[in-house]
Amino acid sequence: MSDWRWDCNTDDSNYVTGGLPPGVIAEAERIATELAAIGADAARVGRPTDREGGLREFDILVGRGFIQFLVVPRHECVYVCNIVWYG
Rank of each mutant, 00 (worst) to 15 (best):
Y79V: 09
G23S: 11
V62I: 13
E27I: 12
E76G: 02
Q68H: 10
A37C: 02
P48M: 03
L61W: 03
R30Y: 05
T17Q: 00
V78S: 04
G39T: 00
R30G: 10
V72N: 03
P22H: 11
E34S: 06
F69Y: 14
V16N: 01
T10I: 07
W4E: 07
I67P: 09
P48C: 01
G23P: 11
R30P: 12
I60F: 05
F69T: 04
P21E: 07
C77F: 03
V72P: 01
G65W: 03
Q68G: 15
E57Q: 15
P73L: 01
T33R: 10
S2L: 01
F58R: 14
E52P: 10
N82T: 13
A42W: 02
A42E: 02
F69R: 04
G63Y: 00
T10R: 11
V45Q: 12
G23T: 09
A32L: 09
V72Q: 02
V45A: 13
G65E: 06
R51N: 09
C8M: 12
R44F: 14
G65H: 08
V71N: 05
Y15N: 12
D7A: 13
R51K: 15
R56A: 01
R64S: 13
D50V: 09
I38H: 00
G63S: 05
D11Q: 10
W85E: 05
A32T: 06
Q68E: 15
A40P: 10
R56F: 00
G65I: 09
I60V: 12
R44P: 04
M1D: 14
D50R: 10
V71H: 00
V16I: 14
I60A: 07
R74G: 01
G46H: 10
P22I: 10
